[in-house]
Structures are given as C-alpha cells and as structure tokens.
Design a protein around this nucleic acid. Structure first.
Length: 240
DNA sequence: CGATTTTGACCCGCGC
DNA sequence: GCGCGGGTCAAAATCG
C-alpha cells in the first residue's frame, strides 16, 4: 500500500520539528530586529538538549531530519538525503524565501517559497495513563514520562512519509473538529518505542500533520534486520 | 503463513 | 462525579 505512495509528485517543502514540551525561549524568541529564528549553532545547542531543528527535502516520499538525537536521525539517513536534495536548514538561513517566525510561546511557523510547514509545540507532552492501570487487567503499563515530540505539517498526497523507518499502524481515530481520521503508527523495531501520528487538516486535505514521539534506538537501515535488540554502539542517538 | 491493517472496545486524563 | 475526547489494545480481516 505504502509503496505506491512513494511515487507521488515531489514538491519542495520545508519541514520543521520541535517538541511539544519545554519550548525553548531562545528558539521561540525572534532575533533582534527580525522575525527569524536563531542560527545553526544555537539550534544545535537546543537540539543537544533534546529539542528541535529544521530540515527540508524536495522529496515528499523521503523525510530525513539531519540532526543527531532527533527521532530518526542517523548518518545513514544523511546519506539517503543526498539523493533527495534534503538537508539541514539553519533557522533563518534557509533558501531564498524561507523564513521561520516565532508566533507564540509554543508555536513556530516555518514557510518556504514553494511550500509551507508549520511546527507546533505545546504543553501536552506527558504520557497519559498511570501505573495502577496495569493492575486492572487489559491496559499495559503506560509510563508517565516526557517524550520528545516533533510535529510536521507537510503538503503531500501521501499520508505516510518515508522517513527511513518501518512503521506499523496500531490505531485510527476520528478526532473532533477534523474531517479526517488520525492514524497511529509505532516503529516496528523491537525495543523501539517511537510512535507517530498522522492526520490531515480538515481545512486542506492536502496538508498532512505528522507528529513523532520518542527517539529511535536503532538505525533506519537496520530496523527490520536487527530485531534482536541491537541498539547500542553505532547509534549516536540512543538517548540523552 | 507471517506481517500488517482495520476497527470496536476499553482506559484514562481533563474539564465542567 | 460524570461525560467527553484522545490514545491504546487486541481480535479479526486482509495482504504479500
């Protein structure tokens, strides 16, 4: 199913990602005299703290952020990006026509000349649920811990962007105030708890919102081959 | 036949 | 306390 989706037209689009939790003041605040986000070094600093950055790609079928520590970043992904003209875009220093504007405390809007991407952040990043639930029967243990979340808004004909990882759909839900159902995916790699949600904007069905949650504990290229829990050593982004 | 998707039910947090 | 809404589970169906 997803295979054919990769053959859709590719439009240049800028992607942004940011955690819902703990929006960084340094990133959210406009630079003096302009409404652009800080330059790369600061982004890297923020990213090292478990936060965010921006990447862009001309290929909607391939989505590879390029910073270590984010859910799906790895040198292998970098290599894959070369063929799709994707790359890291420092805030405020992207292609002509690209800009990033901090609007509110928890929202970053990034736009590009030929596409538009919105990155939202908010206070709701806690895992819901509680340990006692596991004692009641069906519900498995849900951990009340913060996971980094990265939200993309992308114009695409396909729901599931190819980010180099293998995903398994585990749920679909019709959400309020949305004409389109929200799909829930989980990384198929064992010991990897990364999840993502995919939904389309009700206002514009071509806009796809993808929210990643958590960090991959393996490489994109080996996720289906190393199902035995090999997530140490070469992975530079296992955890902070 | 194993992997993946679908889908209804269940659980839990939050607002009222 | 109750109802709503979001997130997850798991059995059944479907796919490759």
């Amino acid at each position: 199913m997803e295979g054919s989706q990769l053959e859709t037209a590719c439009l240049p689009t800028l992607y942004a990602f940011s955690p819902y939790a703990q929006p960084s003041p340094s990133l959210l605040a406009p630079l003096p005299g302009q409404h652009k986000l800080p330059q790369l070094p600061l982004v890297q600093q923020e990213q090292a703290a478990g936060n965010h950055g921006v990447m862009f790609s001309s290929d909607h079928g391939c989505l590879y952020p390029l910073l270590p520590g984010i859910p799906f970043c790895h040198p292998a992904a970098n290599a894959a990006c070369e063929k799709t003209t994707a790359g890291f875009a420092p805030f405020g220093a992207g292609e002509a026509g690209t800009s990033a504007v901090a609007k509110a405390d928890n929202e970053i809007v990034v736009t590009a000349t030929t596409g538009a991407t919105t990155c939202h952040g908010g206070p709701n990043s806690w895992w819901k649920g509680s340990a006692p639930a596991a004692e009641k029967g069906k519900m498995k243990v849900r951990r009340k811990m913060r996971e980094p979340r990265f939200c993309f808004q992308t114009r695409s004909d396909v729901d599931v962007l190819d980010d180099g990882y293998k995903w398994r759909k585990y749920g679909q839900k019709v959400v309020k105030n949305s004409l389109h159902p929200r799909s829930y995916y989980r990384c198929t790699h064992s010991n990897c708890r990364v999840k993502k949600r995919v939904e389309r904007l009700s206002e514009d069905c071509r806009m796809v919102i993808t929210t990643y949650e958590g960090r991959h504990t393996h490489t994109p290229c080996s996720d289906d081959a190393n199902a035995a829990g090999d997530h140490t050593g070469s992975c530079a982004f296992t955890s902070f």
